[in-house]
Nucleic acid binder design. Structure first.
Length: 864
RNA sequence: GCCGGAGUGGCGGAACGGAAGACGCAGAGGACUUAAAAUCCUUUGGCCGUACGGCCGUGCGGGUUCGAAUCCCGCCUCCGGCACCA
């Protein structure tokens, strides 16, 4: 009893303290080892660790420890994305100041993280809500402003008139405010932007640099998000007023088929045109209806396509024809010019709209040898074809004529070639308290005046009221708002918008390199030393937003001469989400598993159960672990029951880490058993081990040679499983195989071989179950941490097979097996195969057509 | 609708174009125990057969190949992402 028991709580605490003493995760520039910067996306300090963090940070920690074993000095920092809405909502709800709320959560989560055994250089901790951090966020804003990359423009926001506040898309539910149910309005507000669109092409081009280290799917998603499209800008004019309406189109070849033009509801021309006309009331009412929903793109996508005729017409520049001008909710102010030319014959959406509103359809592209009739067409014709009724281009193939059409348009000054991007400028203004204040003041005489650098940080005031329905709390602080103009000394007002938290997270990886620098955002030397990040790890949900913002920000910093690279993350890994069965009852919606009664288990799900509250039937689904689906797993409780090592092992042992992980009680039990079996195998054999320096004898028996062979093969396999895409599940399987073999040969293994094998296993599992590996390593007589002992190296001579089994197929079906030395020649293999009695039987009286010999793999005899 | 990813035993999943189902879970049988839990051993894709063994089998249908879970074409289903992109 006692010492030989696996007492994980004690062991884990002991080694966490030891690592701290050893400063195992301290990263020093003067350390001569090569550097490796391993970074996990920092968390919002919600106060509790969830399973998403556990998988993310466990993967990160395994890589950190693996790199340590491989002889790198590893930079492994951790910090807090500590600005954001939840703290402010909590303040409104409970009266606790966001700062206090945040600090409390940070303290709680730090404890949980340490307990999980994740190793960080805590001296480098940053929190974006601390003034010594946001001072530099503000400083970057000033640099962007100087460069003309920060600017103000009007943009529509979701506005709740009752809360007097701007809502995030997430807070808008079916067009209404989530909190009070009031109908949300679209309101145009003056907002700060970063000119990210100017970097669209570069963000696209630079993907070439990332192809080697980023998942292909993320690059694809970003390409789609940036959305480059080539086409033309074409100048239409309003027939009645002469106002010019430029339109972007990717299909200038269909220009002769335009039968109407549509403006976005928020297009400024709409109001200008109809004001004071007979159409005003009708059109503006329709516009108001179209704008009555939220600004979320999803909402825009799912709503029905509607429009209203403005009463005006536009002139098609290529043929002088007048076509009606509409306002339509499918025209987006945020893309292109906010105006769309519509060709119902060759665009499905336009086709449906035209049929709905009885707008003419004109065919200008026809398929080979076929005539299209606008009256009987059932869908738009979008394939390539021959142009008809298209002026000088009639008779040409549309795909081939495209370039000439654009040249012709610009020659006649009717249009010009244009490239458009879906990527928009980055709206950074937030009408919130808990964020970095945008460092500008408004002066009646001088206008917008940046706060001088030496006056940074612009601190968040404390005399603020957090009251529901009062709008931005920051605007309630008189001491904050009222200031003097830095230029003229006259009275001025401070900007009360704060910055999007994505601005904070666009440079935190740089601050980690030099976190205590009080004079600069970071030192050149430190950043040159550690950056770029060698391995970044985080959720796929950040594929577009965060990862594009951070790339853009880094490019700007590069252009400002602040860093000498323009891509921050060399390699990226995205882990899968953690899922678990959730249960749903018609009346009580999602219910926790312990509220399901009866039924039977089918795998991890209870099938045919009933709701404990109402007796109604319960259905199950496998879905992402979340509070709202009541299927959460508390990592802390799991670590209480099984210890951190078991939880870590389980997270990695079942599926490849980039796939969905399924949390099951059976699964964690299996990991628990695995960990215990390793423990008892080592502990029970401690007495049988040889002295630490005893050599493996030269004349080893079969068992010894076999065990050594498998051990050295395991090293190779585990190493390549980790290097080739973090396949920890197969790495763990290889260790299990080896341990199973050792167990079945127990008592017959030479002590020196046993030591070699157990030490090897401990090393290769140490990144995954570090506490147990350290403890057993120590009990085997080692004085130094296993993480300073180096990664094992396989000896090819030891790993080489003495005899191999080669399957012999006849017509692709295995009929026999040959046992041969690995270097038997091709001819000899063929001879042996054909001579084989079983093979002979299956050849029978058929004719051997061909014999395929893959040395070392298999033989296939093709017969007819 | 568009884009991306995935479909393999009862389950999670293995498998450079070369032995399908590694490793683990669950199940069955057994040992230990007064008993249970824990642990250990055996067994486990389906069908036929007493057996040696044979046949079938990686979502469906074709194709390439001596050989396909893997490559190609066409479909189906599920998951994820999305901003009607003119």
């Amino acid at each position: 009893m006692g010492r030989d028991e696996y007492q994980f709580a004690e062991i884990e605490k002991k080694w966490q303290a030891r690592w701290e003493e050893l400063r195992l995760f301290e990263a020093r520039e003067e350390d001569p080892r090569p550097k490796c910067y391993v970074l996990c996306m920092y968390p919002y300090p919600s106060g509790v660790l969830h399973m998403g963090h556990v998988i993310n940070y466990t993967i990160g920690d395994v890589i950190v420890r693996y790199k340590l074993l491989r002889g790198f000095k590893v930079l492994s920092p951790m910090g807090w994305d500590s600005f954001g809405l939840p703290a402010e909502n909590a303040a409104i709800r409970t009266g606790v100041h966001p700062h206090e709320f945040t600090e409390r959560n940070i303290a709680r989560m730090t404890t949980q993280m340490t307990r999980a055994g994740w190793g960080y250089d805590w001296d480098r901790e940053v929190a974006t809500s601390h003034p010594d951090y946001y001072r530099w966020t503000q400083w970057f804003f000033l640099k962007f402003l100087e460069k003309g990359l920060a600017f103000k423009k009007k943009a529509p926001v979701n506005w709740c008139p009752s809360c007097q506040t701007v809502l995030a898309n997430e807070q808008v539910k079916e067009g209404c405010c989530e909190r009070c149910g009031t109908q949300v309005e679209q309101k145009d507000m003056d907002q700060w932007f970063f000119k990210m669109s100017a970097y669209a092409q570069r963000l696209l081009d630079n993907h070439a640099k990332l192809e080697a280290g980023w998942p292909e799917s993320v690059i694809k998603l970003q390409k789609e998000w940036i959305g480059r499209s080539e086409g033309a800008r074409i100048f239409f004019k309003v027939a009645e007023t002469g106002d010019e309406i430029p339109v972007f189109t990717t299909r200038p070849d269909t220009l002769w088929g335009v039968t109407f033009l549509s403006l976005a509801p928020e297009h400024p021309l709409v109001e200008k045109l109809v004001r004071g006309t007979e159409h005003e009331a009708r059109v503006m009412e329709a516009v108001r209806e179209m704008r009555a929903a939220g600004t979320s793109e999803k909402e825009l996508a799912e709503r029905e396509k509607v429009g209203v005729f403005t009463g005006f017409h536009v002139i098609n520049p290529v043929n002088g024809e007048q076509v009606p001008l509409w306002v339509a909710n499918f025209a987006l102010m945020t893309y292109g010019t906010g105006a769309v030319m519509s060709v119902p014959a060759h665009d499905q959406r336009d086709f449906e709209f035209a049929r709905k509103y009885d707008i003419p359809i004109r065919v200008v592209i026809e398929p080979e040898g076929q005539e299209l009739d606008p009256d009987t067409m059932e869908e738009a014709y979008t394939e390539p074809g021959t142009m008809t009724a298209s002026g000088p281009f009639t008779g040409r193939k549309n795909t081939e004529a495209m370039r000439d059409i654009i040249a012709w348009l610009s020659e006649h000054r009717l249009g010009e070639a244009e490239i458009n991007y879906k990527l928009r400028d980055w709206l950074i203004s937030r009408q919130r308290y808990w964020g970095a204040p945008i460092p500008v003041v408004y002066c009646d005489t001088c206008g917008i005046v940046p706060v001088p650098e030496e006056d940074l940080p612009v601190l968040l005031p404390t005399d603020v009221q957090f009251v529901e329905g009062a709008g931005n709390p920051l605007a309630t602080s008189a001491s904050f708002v009222n200031t003097t103009c830095p230029k003229c000394g006259g009275p001025a007002r401070r900007e009360t918008d704060t910055m999007d938290t994505f601005v904070d997270s666009s440079w935190y990886f740089l601050r980690y390199c030099d976190p205590h620098n009080g004079d600069r955002c970071f030192g050149d030397e430190a950043v040159r030393h550690w950056m770029p990040v060698d391995q970044y790890i985080g959720g796929i949900e950040h594929a577009t937003m965060h990862l594009i913002y951070a790339r853009f920000f880094t490019m700007v910093l590069h252009d400002l001469g602040l860093v000498d690279f323009d891509e921050p993350f060399t390699r990226l890994f995205c882990q899968g989400m953690v899922c678990k069965t959730a249960y749903y009852c018609q009346t009580h919606k999602y219910i926790p598993e312990d509220q399901v009664t009866g039924g039977h288990r089918e795998g991890d799900a209870i099938v045919g159960g009933t709701c404990a509250l109402c007796g109604g039937p319960v259905t199950s689904e496998m879905t992402k672990i979340s509070k709202s689906k009541l299927n959460i797993v508390d990592p802390d409780a799991m670590m209480d029951r099984f210890g951190a090592d078991t939880v870590r092992l389980y997270m990695l042992s079942d599926a490849p880490p980039d796939r969905m992980q399924i949390w099951s009680e059976n699964g964690i039990n299996g990991a628990w058993r695995t960990v215990n079996r390793l423990w008892s195998l080592v502990v029970s054999n401690l007495g049988a081990l040889s002295a630490m320096d005893e050599q493996v004898p030269g004349d080893l028996d079969d068992t010894g040679r076999e065990i050594r062979r498998r051990t050295h093969q395991a090293i190779t396999k585990v190493t390549s499983a980790i290097e080739g895409g973090f396949q920890f599940n197969t790495a763990i399987a290889r260790c299990n195989e080896l341990l199973n073999l050792v167990r079945s040969s127990e008592g017959r293994i030479h002590p020196a071989v046993l030591r070699e094998t157990l030490e090897t296993v401990l090393k290769i599992v140490s990144p995954i179950i570090p506490h147990m590996a350290e403890e057993l390593w120590e009990r085997m007589g080692h004085r130094e941490s296993i993480f300073t002992s180096g990664w094992p190296e396989a000896d090819p001579a030891v790993a080489a097979e003495e005899q191999i089994e080669i399957p012999v197929q006849v017509n692709g079906k295995v009929r026999s097996r040959l046992h041969v030395a690995p270097d038997v020649a091709r001819e000899e293999l063929e001879r042996m195969a054909l001579a084989d009695e079983r093979v002979q039987r299956f050849i029978g009286d058929k004719r051997v057509v061909k014999v395929i010999v893959v040395p070392g793999r298999l033989i296939n005899v093709a017969v007819k």
